[in-house]
Nucleic acid binder design. Structure first.
Length: 121
DNA sequence: GCACTGACGCGGG
DNA sequence: TCCCGCGCCAGTG
């Protein structure tokens, strides 16, 4: 259950104008392999309604988002509003992870761990 | 408890 | 590089 609480904290720390992958979020929540739960939580609002769900893309940078947003292009519009370039490909809308991906550096992981300690999670 | 599902990820061919 | 298949695991009925 605290997985979703952690998710909320992790998602809040994704900087505007950057994107993170489902697996990356799961890893930072201490549950590597739970990428699917991240998608579930976002769709059902289990991690809070205010989390920046539009900054979450899959491992390849595709905007798999769909019915959770008002329209299929809502996520694209939100990202572009933050300065993220969203490209049109044969497989759908995609962002360049090398450019906009949230590098899950050691510093960030340690900082998150510290936040979890503070929150008693 | 069982079976099926899914905003996913990865290694092998 | 692209594709395919298998693994993953909490929710749901």
């Amino acid at each position: 259950m605290d997985f979703y609480k952690r998710m909320e904290l992790v998602c809040e720390r994704i900087p505007a104008g950057r994107t993170a992958s489902y697996g990356q979020i799961a890893l930072l929540c201490g549950k590597p392999g739970n990428a699917r739960q991240v998608g579930y939580a976002l769709r059902r609002g289990r991690a809070g309604e205010h989390v920046p769900a539009h900054r979450i893309v899959n491992a390849k940078g595709f905007l798999s988002g769909a019915e959770a947003f008002e329209t299929p292009e809502t996520q694209k519009r939100l990202l572009e509003a933050e300065g993220v370039l969203v490209k049109r490909t044969d497989a759908g809308w995609q962002v360049d992870l090398r450019e906009y991906g949230w590098a899950s550096s050691m510093e960030e992981a340690e900082e998150l761990y510290r936040v979890f300690q503070e929150k008693g999670i």
